[in-house]
Amino acid sequence: MAMLEVKDLHVFYGVIEAIKGISFSVEAGEVIALIGANGAGKTTTLHTVTGLVPAKQGEILFEGKDLLKTPPHKIVEMGMAHVPEGRRIFAELSVLANLKLGAYTRRDKREIEETLEMVYERFPRLKERRGQIAGTLSGGEQQMLAMGRALMSRPKIILMDEPSMGLSPLYVSQIFAIIEEIRKTGTTVLLVEQNAKKALEIADRAYVLETGNIALEGNARELMENDSVKRAYLGE
């Protein structure tokens, strides 16, 4: 059984159908890339999975449980974290307060401290700036904070929405290196990216979303060789 299975998902904004019956699955331990042009419906898909946007029809099974029938605030506790588009850190709170909110559903204080140390090890910059107000961090640091905050819940699967958006090339490489490390710890990753090249390089499998439909899917290496993918997303 797949860890995450989306079946025939339809999502509307008012009368406009943004997601038109897509199905996809993510196996435990995989890195799955979801690529597509601006407005294709990538963010909507992730938002529907974690309950920020309601679905009209379909099923989203996470370890067999239908997320569409789960109160959204219970989803984190089930082992799913979401690094949203635009990072959405709590800009007025300190770095540490942001990280602690990431562990909001956890109770064991000692374990939370351990995870915090682990996050600080992975993002030494966050440790240096733990007392700083998050809104004053640079874009790359804010992205690291958003990722660190998601890791604080010790997720089984982590959803990332355009983590490299608007970052300098140096930060982009860092972010992808971190995703690689996250994969090595056994955490499953569903990665939405506009940087299709980087995403396909790191992913096991990928889905190509076009105006609310899945146009292509398959092994990431093979998709990189696909002519229409090359033309539309790799700029070749």
Binding site: L52, H73, E77, A81, H82, I89, F90, L101, Y104, R149
Partner: peptide
């Protein structure tokens, strides 16, 4: 504090 700043992000933290 989290809800006052961003309800969606607060929900993603598991806050009701």
């Amino acid at each position: 504090l989290a809800v006052s700043e961003d309800k969606g992000a607060a929900q993603l933290m598991g806050i009701n």
